[in-house]
Nucleic acid binder design. Structure first.
Lengths: 236, 236
DNA sequence: CGGACAGTTTGCGATAGCGCAAAACGGGCC
DNA sequence: GGCCCGTTTTGCGCTATCGCAAACTGTCCG
């Protein structure tokens, strides 16, 4: 089993308040694994046997309806935890996790959780805050879906992605993993057609540069304006 | 300060795993208060100085945009906690809480939380599960908003309310607190006009009986059908 | 008992966004 | 180098839902 250097993960929010010497004990309970691009890490509805910490790569968490429609719950960036079903008392994963890029994760067995938080209460506190933050983001998303039109929601979504996983280029910010129009549609509650139209429009205005599963924000500032504008403002 | 009988709250999920004799210690740190109908318990953005447990009545948690639009985050039923900002590491309340009926709550100072969970770790675990459940509900709501049309969403919302706070009558289930079309609109991401039209339609089909801030589901089963139907099914 | 008002109903255009379908595109693979 | 497939683009008609406006109604208050 690969040994993980504590210094690589010590600064993560999950481990805030855990002493360096203790950290080693926590990591000892984990194993690491690599998931190639486009492979599933776990499936919605499966037994929640493990929880995860993403070290490298990017993971998409998506939820599927009985009738097959999907939404993207979130994109997981390196340093974030996912698959926390057990912490919230769920026996099964409520969503599917897929590596969208070659990804490396740490994996703890669910069964280790009670022992871990007993020994390191900070883990429980930190996880609580993480889940709480996600709840708030979730509410924000509901608020946006309720009050904004599609173009604004797409703008917000891209800005968040850029913020979370943007690679700075001299001519803009590139979203650092493969993402399709369909994915963005599933993040914003619309269709890939509409997303495509919007991005085409932006592209012709020089706001973005985009291609197959690739998006570069050329004018983040002007996209912020789009995201925040009230529905009345008129354009030429 | 009013003394709260432990036996009244011992069975609540919040206190699962807390011994009866310990429970008294937890309650000793709280005070109780009564909020008349339509009064605010806390405002979005205010310092999160307390957290709450609802004993009687009903509370609406709502989030407001900078531009004044609102959504209903949830309705709190007796026995549920709310205002947990501190547990999730937020210094300010992310939403406003309003008593929709005369309500009685237990109030703990935020500052007591660290001490409480240290002494009674079960509180932390239980709260974690509560927040986790809310996160999942939130995702479900996003899924619905993304994939279903308004009528189905309204059906789901009413069924949930009936389930959570329904009073059984011989001729149906009544939602046990005052709720307006506007409120339902803010739960489902639509307008009060559309909700009104939908309820009028249902009323003329005998599915519901409704009036000023009052809704009775007469035919819950048939409403379930509405909630679950795929968008293609046609009616006579 | 008569307002006054908050909540509700309803009509009628306007339209954002969907859904379908077809074509263009771009990359990787053999 | 050429083929194949998943992704993206775009046109076009359709409609669910909004937005505005006006009328209506049940309740509470004086």
């Amino acid at each position: 089993m690969a040994k993980v250097d504590t210094s690589l993960v010590a600064h993560l929010p999950l481990f805030a308040g855990v002493k360096p010497e203790e950290l080693d004990d926590v990591l000892r309970e984990a194993r690491s694994a690599r998931y190639p691009k486009n492979t599933a890490i776990f499936e919605q509805g499966a037994d929640a046997q493990s929880f995860f910490l993403l070290l490298h790569g990017h993971v998409r968490a998506a939820k599927t309806t009985p009738t097959g429609e999907q939404i993207v719950v979130r994109y997981v960036a390196p340093g974030e935890t996912f698959g926390l079903a057990m912490a919230i008392g769920a026996a099964h994963y409520p969503a599917t996790a897929i590596a969208v890029d070659d990804s490396v994760v740490l994996i703890w067995p669910t069964s280790a959780w009670p022992r871990l938080i007993e020994r390191f209460p900070a883990l429980a506190t930190n996880t609580m805050q993480t889940v709480g933050k996600r709840l708030q983001e979730s509410h924000t998303r509901i608020l946006e879906m309720s009050t904004q039109q599609v173009e604004q929601r797409v703008a917000h979504a891209l800005l968040r992605l850029a913020n979370q996983s943007g690679k700075k280029l001299d001519h803009g910010i590139e979203i650092d993993f493969p993402i399709s129009r369909q994915d963005i549609a599933q993040m914003t509650g619309t269709t890939l057609h509409t997303v495509s139209r919007i991005l085409s429009g932006w592209e012709s205005q020089g706001l973005v540069e985009s291609g197959r599963q690739r998006i570069i924000l050329r004018e983040p500032h002007r996209i912020v304006v789009l995201a925040e504008r009230n529905q009345d403002s008129g354009a030429a």
